[in-house]
Computed example of a mutant assay.
Amino acid sequence: MRKQLAIVAVIGLSLGLISWGFKGHRAVATIAEKHLTSNTANVVKAYLKGETITNVSTWADENRDKATSSWHYLNLPLGLNHDQFLDAVSKQGNDNVYSAILKVEAMLKDNTSTPVQKNEALKYLIHLVGDAHQPMHVSRKEDKGGNTIQLQFDGKGTNLHALWDSRLIEHEGLSEADIVKQYDWANDAQIKKWQADSPMEWLWESYQISTELYADVKSGQTIDEAYYKKYIKTIHLRIDQAGVRLAGELNKLFNEVTAPKIDVTAMFVNKATKDIVSVTPLNAIGKAVGNVVSTTGKVFSVKDIGSMVLVNLGAAYPNQLLTVVLKGDAKQMASQIEGKTISVEGTVIDYKGKPEIVITEANKISIKE
């Protein structure tokens, strides 16, 4: 997920809207993992090259591909009934969250798709099912999904989109584990009902909610505790529905599929240093202590402490998956990488139980476009 507030406002407008925030997307994925069949879980693990659904759940935002930026949302005018909604969505073409879900599911079903294509399609599907359930992702074009509707909440400026992206969830104050425990309440009958619904119906539900949300605020309004209490249950519902339905889609796709054998780690030789470098997923970096690796992740925080700059990847401190320590010439990169997805190369060390990579040369960091 993007940084909140300023970063959401800038990146969100240029590359498409972002949903649920880091905690929300991970909650959707973790709930989904609980509802997978064992065979589906094995197939998913193989296509994700050993990574978990939870750890790739924000990849589609971090990837920042302009060609797929419109895949994250659906723009529609207010006031449509169900039939008008179906007609409007069907006429929108191939660059919205509905068509994107159908597109990546088709790729996952296609036996001619390569492992690389299936890996990317699966990461998109995991993320986009979450997007489809965030009400402000099925909303109006003229206010960019609520991004231009300015509000105040918890004594800080925000907007309607960011409020639903993460601010209400953050206000609740739960850990990721507690979010999953409290949000995933559906019984067997409810799960069966939700998983029988089509992606079009998920979006219709979001559209109905966003219509209510537009009517319930005015630009400049201060959001109070009553608003939070009124709508936090809606957030619980939508995240639980997204997780349960994601599991349903994955089970339909993979329950009868034989898990492929795919190498988890690729290797290459750095010609400049002659080092053998392992391409290691960020979530597995803690197991690579002592190895020279290349890894990729989103920068969540950058802190200059004078002699060095601390860069946290995967999550903000203290939940980061990796800390990159910039020293010497590498410190010049600090101002360029905040909030971006970067690749780094170096030796993984252990610092007080946390993995770190110390970088002194700027060419060991590359910003992903």
Results as ranks from 00 to 15, higher is better:
Asn363His: 10
Ile337Leu: 13
Ser343Leu: 02
Ile365Pro: 08
Lys364Ala: 03
Ile365Tyr: 04
Ala330Ser: 06
Val348Thr: 07
Ile357Asn: 09
Gly346Ser: 10
Ala334Met: 11
Leu326Phe: 04
Lys331His: 01
Leu326Lys: 07
Gly328Thr: 01
Lys352Tyr: 05
Ile365Arg: 07
Val348Trp: 11
Ala362Ser: 15
Ile359Cys: 10
Ser343Pro: 12
Lys354Asn: 11
Gly346Arg: 13
Lys352Phe: 04
Pro355Val: 05
Ala334Lys: 15
Asp350Pro: 09
Asp329Met: 08
Lys340Thr: 04
Asp329His: 01
Thr341Glu: 04
Lys352Leu: 13
Glu345Cys: 07
Ser335Cys: 01
Ser343Ala: 15
Glu356Lys: 14
Glu338Ala: 04
Asn363Phe: 00
Ile337Arg: 06
Tyr351Met: 13
Met333Tyr: 00
Gly339Lys: 11
Ala330Asp: 05
Gln336Pro: 07
Ala334Phe: 07
Ala334His: 05
Ala362Asp: 03
Glu345Leu: 09
Lys364Phe: 08
Glu345His: 04
Thr360Ala: 14
Val344Ile: 15
Ile349Thr: 12
Lys352Cys: 00
Gly346Trp: 04
Lys327Trp: 05
Gly353Ser: 10
Thr347Glu: 13
Val358Trp: 09
Asp350His: 05
Glu338Leu: 10
Glu356Ile: 02
Lys327Pro: 01
Glu338Val: 06
Asp329Ser: 13
Gly346Gln: 12
Val348Cys: 11
Thr347His: 06
Lys340Leu: 11
Gly339Asp: 09
Asp350Lys: 15
Asp329Phe: 01
Val348Gln: 08
Lys327Thr: 04
Glu361Val: 05
Ala334Ile: 04
Ser335Ala: 14
Lys340Ala: 01
Gln332Ile: 02
Asp350Met: 14
Ala330Lys: 10
Thr341Ala: 07
Gly346Lys: 12
Glu361Arg: 15
Asp329Thr: 00
Ile357Arg: 12
Asp329Tyr: 04
Thr360Lys: 15
Ile365His: 00
Ile359Val: 15
Gly328Lys: 14
Ala330Gln: 06
Ile349Trp: 03
Ile349Leu: 13
Asn363Met: 05
Lys352Gly: 03
Lys331Tyr: 05
Pro355Ser: 02
Asp350Gly: 04
Glu361Phe: 10
Gln336Thr: 03
Leu326Arg: 12
Lys352Asn: 15
Lys354Gln: 09
Glu356Ala: 03
Lys340Asp: 00
Gly346Met: 14
Gln332Pro: 06
Ile342Gln: 09
Glu338Thr: 03
Gln332Asn: 08
Gly339Phe: 09
Ser343Cys: 14
Lys352Trp: 02
Lys354Ser: 08
Gln332Ser: 10
Ile342Ser: 00
Ile359Glu: 08
Ser335His: 03
Pro355Glu: 00
Thr347Ser: 11
Tyr351Ser: 06
Gln336Lys: 15
Glu345Ala: 07
Lys354Cys: 06
Pro355Gln: 04
Val344Tyr: 09
